[in-house]
Nucleic acid binder design. Sequence first.
DNA 1: CGTGCTGTTGCTAG
DNA 2: ACTAGCAACAGCAC
Length: 275
Amino acid sequence: MPELPEVETVTRAIRPLLLKRTFKNASCLVERLRHPLDEEALNHCLAGQRIVDVRRRAKYIVIDLGKNTGLLLHLGMTGHLRICKSELPADKHDRVIFHLSRKEDLRLKDARRFSMAKPCTLDEDGIPHELAHLGPEPLGEKFTGEYLFKISRKRKRPIKSFIMDQAVVVGVGNIYASEALWRVGIRPGRAASRLTKGECESLVAAIREILREAIDFGGTTIINFAGANGEHGAFSERLAVYGRAGEPCLRCPHTTIKRIVQTGRSSFYCPNCQR
DNA sequence: CGTGCTGTTGCTAG
DNA sequence: ACTAGCAACAGCAC
């Protein structure tokens, strides 16, 4: 489920439920997710520690335990977090159970096992060292049209994969990349270096706009931190191109949305109003 | 039954 | 220096 808006939504939802509570211990129900799980290391990091903050960086969730230590979580493609009573039996795809005080758990469930959960150390800004390589936040001040223009000169890759590169800007996944390009009328396959300054500016504006809207709508799909299975979030009905191959373009209804594959991922665009 | 898709990330080979 | 391709995994639609 997660693109940035979904991760932001989950982070906001679990933050008040976790703040000032204490971890007891963790149990790993599988040997590995994206990386091998180290139950001992998790327990060493978590046991008895109080949660002082819960925040998002890119699509990662950082649970700050103070003293420059924390728990670093990523939901991969299908990860879910929820908080539930400890007495509840584990779901089929529950992978890690973090036991909290007051007989409640934070549980990480993930069918495809692309998630991650590992202890981390934080730099002075509270960011895990593992995330030092990431580009600017799309909603932060550093992500400007000027910046995008500057770093895209001489870059021949398609603009869509360029804005999905986490070293360029974080948090723009497959759905919102297609959506942002539709909004500004740029084809996903255009070489990054062929964007004008003005196009870079409008693209940045569109990315920010769309992510903000999606956050306001609680994400495209709702990740399930509290209860049942994921449902479609309100924003999924607002997607203009993603998943709409063969359907009419919302700007030029006589044209049909096209699907192409770029670096193994589906891209959707309107061949008429995206150039 | 297979086949081909799926919201991510980071490594590898060219 | 840069980029395409792929692997990790499970489930689902056809």
